[in-house]
Amino acid sequence: MINYIVFGLLGLGLLFAVIRFVKGPQLSDRVVSLDTFNMIVIGLIVLIALVYNNNLYLDIAIVYSILAFLETIVFARYLEGRHGNH
């Protein structure tokens, strides 16, 4: 029962992040919402590990968090370079 509530709340959080991603007036808002989206997905992966009782999903969560960090840094670099030097 509690699993349904938790997954539902996380889904709502994802929905809000996606709405901001679609609406976001500036590119930077989209990068921020992507960051939040990634963090919520990490939580989802860890929850799936608990539900399926499988250790391997934790490794996926580690790799996903590393990739999410790199993604954030790369997008921020791109953002900085686009307007920064002229």
Binding site: V6, L12, G13, I19, T36, M39, I40, G43
Partner: peptide, 13 residues
């Protein structure tokens, strides 16, 4: 944790 995640999404919005 789920409630805080929801608040994060709401804050973003």
């Amino acid at each position: 944790g789920a409630v805080f995640y929801l608040l994060g999404g709401l804050g973003i919005l």
